[in-house]
């Protein structure tokens, strides 16, 4: 019998804790596949953040560190500076990266820190139960924007790729989505490219992945994918924002 599908080596053989229909699982798999294909598992060190992906240190088959909320890029900096030959990545959500950890993110990029950031943007705080995120869209209802986010009170969503691509130190910045087979393939390419950018010593790399949160959006998994396409993609256009 021919094996046509298997778990990537870089993923641990454990059940993930994510909600049904959540796209974190797909993104984990893409990261793991990229690590396998580049054959870098033995020298990769991952940094888990705080949020839904807090347990990601249990899911990747490489050395892992768990960082305080928002501080993953600083922790990754510490690791990379000690072991420049390691491949170091962080896996962060939108609250972790674009709210509490903005300073660490921006300055890691500005320094051209040779790390790779996997940034999962689902426009909401999932772990804490559906509160407003820095990337929550205008009009979007969350637990803490119950009348819909309005610019007057809550300001505007942050476009991370656009912002970071202006910095000299960023070498590869891309926004992808995992809503369709085609986009998943593109996402994989981008993640692999980001790791390659780091390995080649070009500078800071980040891949923003538009993701869903059926549980906190109050939609079915399929409806969530439709909502992502209809609402997130127009505001957060896919594409490569920077490539050195």
């Amino acid at each position: 019998m021919t094996k046509v599908f298997e778990k990537p080596k870089a993923l641990c053989d454990v059940p993930l804790h994510y909600c049904p229909g959540c796209t974190h699982g797909i993104i984990h798999r893409l990261v793991a596949e990229a690590i396998d294909e580049l054959d870098i598992l033995g020298k990769t060190v991952g940094v888990a953040s705080v949020g839904c992906s807090v347990f990601s240190y249990n899911y990747f088959e490489c050395d892992m560190q768990q960082a305080a909320h928002g501080r993953a890029p600083a922790v990754a900096t510490g690791i990379k500076r000690v072991h420049p030959g390691n491949v170091v990545f962080t896996y962060q959500g939108d609250g972790d990266l674009a709210a509490i950890g903005t300073a660490e993110m921006v300055h890691a990029a500005a320094r051209g820190e040779k790390i790779t950031v996997i940034f999962v943007n689902n426009a909401i705080y999932g772990m804490t139960g559906g509160q407003m995120a820095p990337t929550t869209l205008l009009g979007q209802v969350t637990q803490t924007s119950p009348y819909g986010r309005n610019a007057e009170n809550q300001g505007y969503p942050i476009k991370v790729c656009e912002m970071l691509s202006t910095l000299e130190g960023s070498a590869y910045i891309a926004r992808v989505s995992v809503d369709s087979v085609k986009n998943i393939r593109n996402a994989k390419k981008a993640i692999k490219k980001a790791f390659e950018t780091q390995i080649e010593g070009k500078g800071f790399s980040l891949v923003e992945v538009l993701s869903t949160c059926p549980t906190n959006w109050g939609l079915s998994p399929v409806e969530s994918l439709d909502w992502l396409r209809a609402n997130m993609m127009p505001f957060y256009p896919l594409g490569i924002y920077k490539e050195k």
């Binding site: 060190v45 940094v47 560190q65 960082a67 305080a68 501080r71 600083a74 922790v75 990754a76 900096t77 510490g78 690791i79 990379k80 500076r81 000690v82 072991h83 390691n86 300073a103 660490e104 921006v106 300055h107």
Partner: peptide, 26 residues
């Protein structure tokens, strides 16, 4: 060795965390 001026004390101590976790005297 490495000297790095962090963007804040918060970032600095977390860089220490990363480096210590990576086995360095920091």
């Amino acid at each position: 060795g490495v000297y790095l001026q962090a963007e804040s004390e918060v970032a600095a101590i977390n860089m220490v965390y990363g480096a210590a976790g990576a086995g360095a005297r920091v």
